[in-house]
């Protein structure tokens, strides 16, 4: 019973581990919250599928510190992101911007879904328009009756 309570407590208190070290955290909670929000959108270039807040890589730490320095210096969130995009390109953003170079990325799935929908629509339309029902001819009727009699 105690074990189960401890497990529940443990699960309730645990959350996704952040790599942000205590010595990096800003004194002002509002600024720190901004730093966390910005950090979640920035890719750690070393591990690539983690944000800088999630990564223990040395470069991620350096970038977290830069984000905090910029916040203290009074930069806006988009200025901070521009600063890093200027150095590492759009790839540093976990959410790629919508622009001509990324149209295919953002719109590609929609285009494919639209094509699939059109193909499906055409398929079902044609299936519905199959050859009209034709009554059996005299010869077919006789053949059918013969078959049924045979079975009986």
């Amino acid at each position: 019973m105690i074990g189960r309570a401890a497990l529940v407590l443990f699960l309730a208190l645990s959350s996704a581990a952040l790599a942000v070290n205590p010595d990096e955290i800003l004194a002002d909670p509002a600024q720190e919250a901004r730093a966390r929000a910005v950090g979640r959108d920035l890719r750690c270039l070393v591990c690539q599928n983690q944000s800088i807040d999630d990564s223990d890589a040395g470069l991620a730490r350096d970038l977290r510190i830069i984000v905090r320095e910029r916040i203290k210096a009074g930069d806006s969130d988009s200025q901070i992101k521009d600063y890093l995009v200027g150095r590492y390109g759009d790839f540093v953003l976990l959410n790629p911007p919508f622009k001509p170079a990324t149209w295919l990325l953002w719109l590609g799935p929609l285009v494919l879904a639209a094509i699939a929908a059109m193909v499906a629509l055409a398929f079902y339309r044609r299936a519905g328009r199959r050859a009209p029902e034709r009554p059996l001819s005299e010869a077919e009727k006789k053949a059918l009756e013969a078959l049924i009699k045979d079975q009986g």
């Binding site: 270039l45 470069l59 350096d62 150095r87 590492y88």
Partner: peptide, 10 residues
């Protein structure tokens, strides 16, 4: 490592 970051080194 600040110069490296300025140069986009990762």
């Amino acid at each position: 490592g600040r110069t490296a970051i300025d140069w986009g080194v990762y």
